[in-house]
Design a protein around this nucleic acid. Structure first.
Length: 445
DNA sequence: TCTGGGGTCCTAGGACCC
DNA sequence: TCTGGGGTCCTAGGACCC
């Protein structure tokens, strides 16, 4: 048997840990730049707020209604969910973290335990220790466990934990389950299945396996088997990523290459850090840019390019300079750019690097490694971006109070403050990082 | 004015080999 | 008229997930 454990309305629940006054009220969390709704409380869902609604439309769509909005605060969500996961990991022998808010566990050697009670106790413990409500679904396959999890969420009668452990329960559950809600059935598959008259998960499992294989290939067939109780999705170790991407939309359009290059340098630096954190190197660096697709009145352009490294690397300096080269190659002037990103791929463990003798300089390489690890240590200790490359620095911003009596422009520059990458995107309603930043913890409010 | 970010897997088709 | 057969590897694009 497997259990899936996932946090209810994860980001909203994290915000409510420090704002208990918002329990029972409509709360949403916004994407980067306060762009659109990415998480909704139960009350917000009941009001009819759809996921993905642009923030600026909320006032018009729900006039006069009180909606509590938060900018996304991934530092907070990362920390709180890590606490949830560490409890789940200890509660069961085999653990697979599937996403920020979700984990599978294999209930091996727990046949003698009453699983329903195990789940209910786990929910209680997590709520008490961390303050985040979770739902738990238990079944013989992961796809069925996801179905059970949905029932646990939707019907309070299950007391946060639903178990499918008999043929009768399986059939009953699948007859009630819309096909589009099944894990592994997305928009496209759903609409094609509906064309064939398949409306529920039960309709789907009633179709012949060969037909499913023919129409929906391997992924569809796997889902069909899982719903039929045949376990075929492995517990995977997803701790080492095969590709790493850092990308952002900009708060406004950008027309000059210098500003985009500063952003791209920050994306690249973030990718290099993530590579080092998982002890890997990459040998392909991809950069993409595009204009604002919603502005049909403006000329559109988008492109991407990949640059290979002769010797796989994770040095910030190397990745940043490659990314800047790539950007220069796809940059076209006179466009208004809205988004860019860096992807590193062809990832392998850093201890297995094949060096290229044409390219490789032992001494420089070792120096860069030592520099990076020193910077990583400092940034981990004193906060992200305590030390960055010059290429990552945004133009200095004058501090109004400092400039009053200044006559020397050079002085102004020294006193000016450079914006950080963290602040380069809009986040008007961001909560504090009480669990990860001393300065926020000491905030008296 | 304002519209997110980060992943995985699978398949078809092209390039190349003998 | 009529243009082989079989294999591997790589990549882009499409589907899915959160």
């Amino acid at each position: 048997m497997y259990a899936v454990i996932d946090c209810d309305n994860c980001y909203v629940s994290c915000e409510r840990v420090f704002r208990p006054d918002l329990n029972g009220k409509p709360v949403v969390v916004l994407s980067n730049n306060d762009g659109c709704v990415v998480a909704r409380s139960k009350e917000a869902k009941l009001m009819g707020i759809k996921a993905g609604t642009p923030y600026y439309q909320l006032k018009d769509l729900f006039p006069g209604q009180e909606i509590h909005c938060f900018s996304s605060n991934y530092e907070l969500y990362g920390d709180l969910t890590a606490r949830v996961m560490s409890i789940v990991r200890k509660a069961s022998p085999e653990f697979w973290r599937y996403s920020i808010d979700e984990a599978f566990v294999e209930l091996k050697g727990m046949e003698h335990i009453e699983l329903k009670k195990w789940g209910e106790d786990l929910h209680k413990q997590i709520l008490k220790w961390v303050g985040i409500p979770v739902s738990i679904g238990i079944a013989p396959t992961k796809t069925l466990a996801k179905c059970a999890d949905r029932f646990a969420k939707d019907y309070p009668g299950y007391n946060h934990c639903c178990v499918i452990d008999s043929e009768e329960k399986r059939v009953k559950a699948l007859k009630l389950f819309e096909i589009g809600e099944v894990w592994g059935i997305g928009r496209r598959f759903k609409s094609r299945l509906e064309d064939y008259g398949v409306a529920t998960a039960f309709d789907f499992i009633s179709k012949p396996q060969s037909w499913v294989k023919h129409e929906f290939h391997l992924p569809g067939e796997r889902t069909w088997m899982e719903l039929n109780g045949i376990d075929c999705i492995p517990m995977e170790d997803t701790t080492t990523k095969k590709s790493i991407c850092t990308s952002r939309s900009f708060p406004s359009n950008i027309g000059d290459i210098e500003t985009v290059r500063t952003h791209v340098s920050n994306f690249a630096a973030r990718c290099a850090e993530k590579l080092r954190r998982q002890n890997t190197v990459c040998s392909l660096v991809t950069v993409f840019v595009h204009t604002n697709r919603f502005r049909e009145d403006l000329p559109q352009y988008g492109n991407s390019i990949s640059v290979s490294l002769l010797t796989p690397d994770n040095s910030t300096q190397v990745i940043v300079s490659k990314a800047c080269e790539a950007l220069a190659a796809i940059w076209r002037p006179y466009f208004q750019y809205k988004k860019a990103g860096v992807i590193v791929s062809d990832i392998q463990p850093s201890n297995a690097v094949q060096t290229n003798f044409l390219d490789f300089d032992d001494k420089t390489h070792e120096k860069l490694q030592r520099l990076d690890s020193a910077i990583d240590r400092i940034n981990r200790l004193l906060g992200d971006e305590t030390i960055v490359l010059g290429a990552q620095q945004y133009p200095l911003q004058k501090e109004p109070t400092d400039t009053k009596n200044t006559t020397n422009p050079h002085d102004e520059k020294i006193r000016g403050k450079s914006m950080s990458f963290r602040d380069a995107i809009k986040h008007e309603f961001r909560s504090k990082n009480y669990t990860t930043r001393w300065s926020d913890l000491l905030d008296t409010k």
